[in-house]
Write a protein that binds this DNA or RNA. Structure first.
Lengths: 207, 207
DNA sequence: CGCCAAAATATGACGGTGTCAAGATTGATT
DNA sequence: AATCAATCTTGACACCGTCATATTTTGGCG
């Protein structure tokens, strides 16, 4: 039924997947402002209201896209942290760089993932927002776990009582903030990404 | 002509100021989504297109609001940094706390000031965007200046070659990121603001 | 004072958006 | 074959930003 989605198109095929894919393309092409349900439907070749049978809201659709973004980000962190070659210190540096570069590579997706469009209030289907949280929360928890290890190895500069959660919030805040400022083109030049990340690493490591 | 704007109302009074004020109120009340030119015009008591004689765009209006936000933020930083009582170390801590609390107190304004709505592309009147930059840029420069002093006093943890610009970008990134995550309600509880800020201060100071 | 150009405001219209209600079509199940 | 629920379409509504055009008001000048 849901398997073998190759030729088993009854009405349209499985619209849900197609909508997510194409909407993701539109997001990448023209930013969040270019993503409208009507244009999406036209591009897919269905009527304007067809998507409403697979997503309660436009918001629910956007949550679906963001969801895959968090899965992707989570995956990236894991494979980087579990790598065998580099030292722990190098992995810390990798985390900073890779995180910011992920945002740099997918600016509109990142903007969507962390924008208030999605996270504010409970606009759309509770189920959809719940699924989003189910994808995003483990992603953050993994960052706490990584931070805990860096902390136990005395890598991070700090004097008072240690808290992996607090340290993780600060670290995530830093990469998130750098990424946002970079993406939005506020005062940082994209060309200096690596330099800024290197400097951040140096400021956090104990000397 | 532009002076004495008290009783010199010819058509409506000075609409421009009124529009900025009321739009700012609407922003504070219901977030950016509640700010529409039509509702704004209705609330002020003019026709829908009257605002277009004072702002080229909706974007230009938003830039005007954000502009005052940057002036406000700049002012806050200055008065805090120039205070006589506290030590430099305490001023550093104050900067972190006050910045994040500014965002916490005016979430929608802060979101607007740093959102891509305004900074992306050259949508609206160049003049408007230019005025915005003229308000925002000194604000950032002042943060670089503060950072330079902290750096020269050897307050900040760091090993390599010093750069006030890079350090400032990292610091701003951190407070900006914490503020954003907080505002958007992603994974941090607003109740923990002070704790998180304290922890950030501790991670940046040299021990 | 009277007139005129310019600034300010208003009305109408256009294309775009998200979303609901109601009807039509299809696929699978009995 | 008949039925039923899932799926899709059409029509409509209320918003939105913005342009073209007409109307009013103002300030300055002869």
């Amino acid at each position: 039924m849901k398997n073998t989605p190759e030729k088993s198109k009854y009405h349209h095929g499985d619209l849900r997947t197609t909508l997510l894919t194409v909407a993701g393309e539109m997001l990448k092409e023209g930013g969040i402002e270019e993503v409208s349900l009507r244009k999406l439907a036209a591009r897919v070749g269905v009527s304007r209201t067809a998507p409403y049978h697979h997503f309660k809201d436009k918001n629910a659709l956007l949550c679906g896209i963001a969801e895959s973004g968090f899965t992707q980000l989570h995956q990236m962190n894991k494979s980087s942290f579990k790598a065998e070659g580099p030292s722990t210190k190098e992995k810390f540096s990798s985390f900073i760089h890779e995180y910011v570069n992920f945002a740099k590579a997918n600016p509109d997706l990142y903007e969507l993932m962390f924008g208030r469009t999605i996270w504010k209030h409970e606009n759309s289907s509770k189920e959809s927002t719940q699924k989003l949280r189910d994808a995003a929360y483990p992603c953050f928890q993994y960052q706490v776990a990584m931070t805990r290890e860096w902390q136990q190895l005395k890598l991070l500069n700090h004097s008072g009582e240690e808290s992996a959660l607090r340290a993780s919030q600060v670290l995530w805040g830093t990469v998130h903030g750098i990424a946002k400022l970079l993406i939005d083109g506020i005062y940082t030049d994209v060309a200096h990404v690596e330099e800024i990340c290197d400097y951040a690493v140096d400021m956090f490591l104990v000397h």
